[in-house]
Amino acid sequence: MTLRIAVCVKYVPDATGDRGFADDLTVDRDEVDGLLSELDEYAVEQALRISEESDDAEVTVVTVGPDDAKDALRKALSMGADKAVHVNDEDIHGSDVIATSAILAKALEKTGFDLVVCGMASTDGTMGVLPALLAERLSLPQVTLLSELSVEDGLVKGRRDGDAATELLEAPLPAIVSVTDQSGEARYPSFKGIMAAKKKPVQELDLDDLDIDADEVGLAGAWTLVDAVAARPARTKGTIVTDEGDGGKQLAAFLATQKFI
């Protein structure tokens, strides 16, 4: 039996660009170049490793996003994923994470899977909750924020380095997992991989295909409202001194004026 692995990947504005907001107070996805969220590369990597270790596996990357999100899918395909699903619909613009999770859950059900691998958080929203929401919607165990992951005999096992403790987790398939950037460096696409990716199938889906009403998602269906956004005043550059043997003393004097010492 083929082990069907689905990887959720997000197309995000480049963090090193000048990120900002559009007039409707949604994340501006036009001004800054986008890319496959770096944290989702770790998810693709883990999916590929599991696939390589099993006799028969297939890796499908799934994204919910605008036209350009295709770039994220291409990158994942060139890393080695087998096929892709792109959910794209004008009405999705402005969806909050609750709505996004509804769309992704439907897309995953339609695609079919034994294991879903997500990143730990998207680099734009940085909520890190979508995997938990998918588990809730699909009534499956969440095995999330893993720094190590393995699949054996129908079980997924992983290590979660939490705030207060390190936990070893286990759940039967099907399950939803997310992996951290401690899980292992993601591979670079090879030239061969990049060429092969061009021929790999990308299935296009819209809200109709998923039986989702337009008013359940997008800005209209969002359950939170952004009232205001304001650029944080840039920190004003303070005093910079060059150490000429008394740098530590000067720093101490500054800290004393601020009452830290």
Binding site: R235, K237, G238, T239, I240, T242, G247, Q250, L251
Partner: peptide, 11 residues
Amino acid sequence: FDLVDYGVVGD
């Protein structure tokens, strides 16, 4: 150094 209140260029 763009964000600091106080910076020391040094080892």
